[in-house]
Write a protein that binds this DNA or RNA. Sequence first.
DNA 1: TTTTTCTCGATAAAAATTTCTCGATTGGCA
DNA 2: TGCCAATCGAGAAATTTTTATCGAGAAAAA
Lengths: 221, 221
Amino acid sequence: MDFSQGVPEPTLRRLPTYCHFLRRLAQDGADVVSCRQIGDALHLDPTQIRKDLAYAGMAGRPKVGYPVPELLAGVENFLGWNNTQQAILVGAGSLGTALLGYKAMDRNGVRIVAAFDTSPDKTFQAIHQVKVLPMRKLVDLVGRMQIHVGILTVPAESAQTVCDLMVQAGIRAIWNFAPVALKVPDTVIVQNENLFSSLAVLSSRLQSTFQPRTLPEEDPS
Amino acid sequence: MDFSQGVPEPTLRRLPTYCHFLRRLAQDGADVVSCRQIGDALHLDPTQIRKDLAYAGMAGRPKVGYPVPELLAGVENFLGWNNTQQAILVGAGSLGTALLGYKAMDRNGVRIVAAFDTSPDKTFQAIHQVKVLPMRKLVDLVGRMQIHVGILTVPAESAQTVCDLMVQAGIRAIWNFAPVALKVPDTVIVQNENLFSSLAVLSSRLQSTFQPRTLPEEDPS
DNA sequence: TTTTTCTCGATAAAAATTTCTCGATTGGCA
DNA sequence: TGCCAATCGAGAAATTTTTATCGAGAAAAA
């Protein structure tokens, strides 16, 4: 397996799906699982799954498959989900609030320890048991608690400003929900998440079922 | 340009980003824009942008670029954002609530006209001006209002059941936030959105900056 | 024990996507 | 007018990702 280029992003994106499925399998008490089974359940090609798992360093046994507990632990470990990263969230709007409410976050490698917002209505309140603090506390808290992950759920206009603040505070990785290309030093990782990208794929596909985009064979002019 | 295979998904995912940028340009009163400019702003390759725009059927002029208003209108039209689809949302949890609060949804081709939830605490309330109804009203409302888009923000356990209900009601496209591979007839479009996929890429990358995954050159045993 | 069947692992082929190259077109400027 | 610089558009090349093929290993069945 070629690791020189790092693990492909599509592989990384599929691994959490496997985790979720494996957790359920483990709960049901399954000992082993084959790529075929995973593929059937997840509508994916077994070969691809085998390759993804190989990237994560997992090996199986012919005719048997992979031992479920080891596989789950291995993939979670590979994704860094066993030593949970502490994170801060900036922007306690509706999306920010939703993320604060996600209990599952803990089991997915990230724990939000504090939120920040500019609105005085929100600061010093708690949302889903997480305290919301004013922005001026950010740099100090991040530095003191050695936090590496920042979640950015502010409007597009303020995204770069907040991003700069995060970088200044020592944040190493930013999960960015603002539809903006952030400028950061190349020591900082930015992972963009744009919900509307996904929605665009949907509505574009839906539209083309109504009026298929056909290319004229010959120009009939 | 080859349309026989349809528009590539990566292209579709980038188009909304262009829209967002173009809207700001249009507000600032820019007449024309070149791929270079867009690329600089969005950290993308100009050639790729040119190709994406060509897929959307847009043409520019050498030395000048693309006229901003036409380009914006053209891309929005291509994405089906000018004739907004009505949608229902099922699962008024924290994520569902966040989506209901997204004012921007309207400008992105989808308007949520009703929400559904099993919890009696939530039904017949309104969240962000959208009424929450009990599940039993779903089939009738979808049929009566000729709604084609369903947004699925329920827990994994109930996702397939709700999905079946949507399909039965006549939904043609499902935006699925549950980490489950839904089974649907192949006339129905499913667009999966898994926030944790994105988070996994982030945490995996972050982890490898701490302890790079190196492949041993030679086995030193 | 031998055969059959299933699954992994590695390699190769195919497909999709991104990046590069180059000629053509257009506006600005001397 | 004629040259220069910028940009598009199309095709080629390179890269990445997915899918297919095949041999080997291991359990189950004969």
